[in-house]
C-alpha cells in the first residue's frame, strides 16, 4: 500500500490541492477511515458508483451525506424497501388539469448524489430502475428522456446480515458499481472520540462545500488523462487473466471491471498526487474493485474470508 511518509511526491499537484480539502473535511466527520474516504472520492472522480456493504450504524449514511455536503452536491436519500416502486425512484407523471397535460415530477434520483439505502431490500424491478439510471445517466419516462444531473453519483448500501426477505443483486447488476467498500468498526481510540463528541449529524449539516462544481467536473475529466505506463497495462491485464485462469474464483473479472480497475487506479493516482499511475495505485484500489465481483470457487487455495485483493496481488508479479 502507499506509504505517504516515504515517497516524496513532486509537490502537490494542482489537482491534489483541490482534492485535499475534501478529504480533510470528510476525515473530520468520519473519524479514522481515511482510506475508505479516499476510495469514495476516487470512485466519484472516476465517474463510478459506490457500494458500501456493512452492518448498520457504522456511518454509511453519514459518509454519503458528508460527501454530498463537502462536494456541494444535491443530495437525496432513498430508503429501499420491498414495496418501493420504480416511480418512487425515477419520478412520476402527473396530469395537470390547468394545462391539460401530463407533467413529469422528477423523483429523488434527480440528485447529484443519491444514497440508495439497503438496496437489496427492494424488488428487482425497483433496483433495476435505479441501476438503469446509473448506467445510462438518464431517465426515460412516458417516452421522454430526462438527463440526470452531473456529476451523478450513487452510493448504495447493503446489509450483509439479515438476508431474509432480501433480493440479492445479480452479478450483472453488481458490475455496475465501480467499487465496494466496507467501513467496519472504528478503532478503539477513534470510537472513544466519536462517543465524546456525540452526534455527527450536526457536523454534516455545518459542512460547506470545499470544492466548486466546476472544479469537480474538471477533476472528473482529468482522471482519464492520468498517464498509464505500458508495464501497468500489462499488470492490469495480468490481474484480469489471473482471476479468470487461476481457478480460484467462480468467474473472473469482466473487461468492464478491467476498465473500471484502470479508471479507479487513475483516480487514486490523481487523489494521491502521482504524475502517473503507479503499481501502488492499482494495488490500492484492487480490493474494492473485486470485493463485490469475485466469488471464491470451491477447491481454491485462497481461504474463505481472506482479502481477495491481497490474495491476487500476492500472486501477480509487479512489472
Amino acid at each position: 500500500m502507499a506509504t505517504p511518509t516515504l515517497i516524496a511526491t513532486r509537490g502537490a499537484t494542482d489537482h491534489q490541492a483541490l482534492i485535499r480539502p475534501v478529504l480533510e473535511a470528510l476525515d473530520r466527520i468520519i473519524v479514522g477511515k481515511p482510506r475508505q474516504i479516499a476510495l469514495s472520492v476516487a470512485c466519484l472522480l472516476a465517474r463510478g458508483h459506490l457500494l458500501i456493504e456493512d452492518v448498520p450504524g457504522v456511518g454509511k449514511t453519514t459518509l454519503a451525506h458528508a460527501l454530498a455536503r463537502a462536494l456541494g452536491l444535491s443530495y437525496h436519500r432513498i430508503q429501499f424497501t420491498s414495496d418501493l416502486l420504480p416511480a418512487d425512484v425515477i419520478g412520476v407523471s402527473v396530469f395537470h388539469r390547468d394545462s391539460s397535460r401530463f407533467e413529469f415530477h422528477k423523483g429523488p434520483v434527480f440528485s447529484q448524489l443519491v444514497l440508495a439505502d439497503e438496496i437489496n431490500r427492494a424488488t428487482p424491478k425497483a433496483q433495476s430502475a435505479l441501476l438503469e439510471a446509473m448506467e445510462e445517466r438518464q431517465v426515460t419516462a412516458d417516452g421522454t428522456t430526462y438527463s440526470l444531473p452531473a456529476p451523478f453519483f450513487v452510493v448504495a448500501t447493503r446489509n450483509p446480515a439479515n438476508q431474509i426477505g432480501t433480493f440479492p443483486l445479480p452479478e450483472s447488476q453488481l458490475d455496475r458499481f465501480l467499487m465496494q467498500i466496507e467501513l467496519g468498526y472504528p478503532a478503539p481510540s477513534d470510537e472513544r472520540a466519536l462517543l465524546a463528541n456525540g452526534e455527527r449529524r450536526a457536523l454534516v449539516e455545518q459542512q460547506h462545500a470545499v470544492v466548486s462544481l466546476d472544479a469537480l467536473l474538471r477533476l472528473q475529466d482529468q482522471v482519464g488523462k492520468v498517464h498509464v505506463a505500458e508495464p501497468l497495462l500489462d499488470y492490469v491485464q495480468a490481474i484480469l487473466a489471473y482471476t479468470r485462469e487461476s481457478g480460484e474464483f467462480v468467474a473472473g473479472l469482466s473487461p468492464r471491471a478491467g476498465i473500471g480497475l484502470l479508471r479507479a487506479a487513475q483516480a487514486w493516482a490523481l487523489v494521491n498526487g502521482h504524475g502517473g499511475v503507479h503499481p501502488e495505485d492499482i494495488q490500492a484500489v484492487l480490493g474494492s474493485i473485486v470485493a463485490h465481483r469475485l466469488q471464491l470457487a470451491h477447491g481454491g487455495s485462497i481461504e474463505r474470508g481472506a482479502n481477495l485483493g491481497a490474495a491476487i496481488l500476492a500472486a501477480v508479479p509487479v512489472p
Binding site: M1, A2, T3, L6, I7, H278, P279, E280, Q283, L313, A314, A315, V316, P317, V318
Partner: peptide, 10 residues
Amino acid sequence: PGEPPAAYAA
C-alpha cells in the same frame, strides 16, 4: 513478486 516498489523501499 507482488510487492510494489514503495512497500519494498519502506
